[in-house]
Design a protein around this nucleic acid. Structure first.
Lengths: 136, 136
DNA sequence: TCAAATTTTGCAACATAGTTGCAGAAAGGA
DNA sequence: TCCTTTCTGCAACTATGTTGCAAAATTTGA
């Protein structure tokens, strides 16, 4: 728990019980978490505050938002992001069965041959299928 | 207009003024359209009916839904989809400035080296940047 | 062309996700 | 401890999407 406390302090965010709980939860989560799944675990807290907490975490570069196409925003800890730059351009995987989303930080992102006249600056890649857990 | 009429008949959908207008609009659109942009153009029609129209078009394989990460569902005509199978696994491009989304049907989708234990079945790739129009 | 069967539409009501303003509470520093 | 700043929780609101149902429109075929 003091590990997440350090993160908050380093980012100049006040250490509150809610923030500690949320960050602790994400720190130990194996998959990316949605706001809904956080709400399910911390039912004493206010929905709006949770939105704002996640927003400020994201702005400070503690977590990154994942658009996995399920319509639900999900969040995961950033390996090495800060408030100036997010390094979250890794591939994500979304399970069609359980809906969980994982960061595939080891997977090499592909390069694209740009035949178009559009200027490509970032990408969002979500692989879909059946996750390790659901296969068994 | 009779071209889109044929599409509806072929798919066993009744030919109604609303469907003709929506399909005609999508047929001539250069970018993928969101429900919102359709509403802006066809303001005489009911919001709920529009949802259901898009849904039935999608089910019949006339259009495909694009998850471009903007949170808004967008739709584009299917080049060769039918109700049994969607062939919409091409790369999409989303402009950060104007928000428009395009199908890059010419772009070769990359292959992924699967080092994980997850089973990959589909993918969703959205390239982001500045589109041709916004560059000029 | 008209009536019956079927599909589609539009309304009401509801559900969920997300946002803003503001007052009071809590955290952190002196 | 007190003061400043930040955070929280409430109320109210917007946008997006869904379901049930009755009325309207379309299609089929006599």
């Amino acid at each position: 728990m003091s590990e997440v406390k350090e993160i908050l302090k380093k980012k100049n965010l006040r250490v509150t019980p809610m923030r500690l709980q949320i960050l602790d939860l994400m720190f130990h989560a194996s998959a990316a978490v949605s706001q809904k799944s956080i709400e399910a675990k911390l039912k004493d807290f206010d929905r709006i505050t949770l939105y704002r907490t996640l927003k400020s975490f994201e702005e400070k570069g503690i977590i990154h938002k994942i658009e996995d196409g399920t319509g639900l925003n999900k969040y995961a800890m950033c390996a090495d992001c800060d408030e100036h730059h997010h390094h979250d351009e890794h591939v994500h995987f979304n399970c069609n069965k359980c809906g969980d989303t994982f960061c595939l930080e080891d997977m090499e992102p592909p390069s694209f041959v740009n035949k178009t006249k559009h200027q490509i600056e970032q990408f969002n890649i979500v692989l879909k299928g059946t996750c390790e857990m659901c296969l068994n």
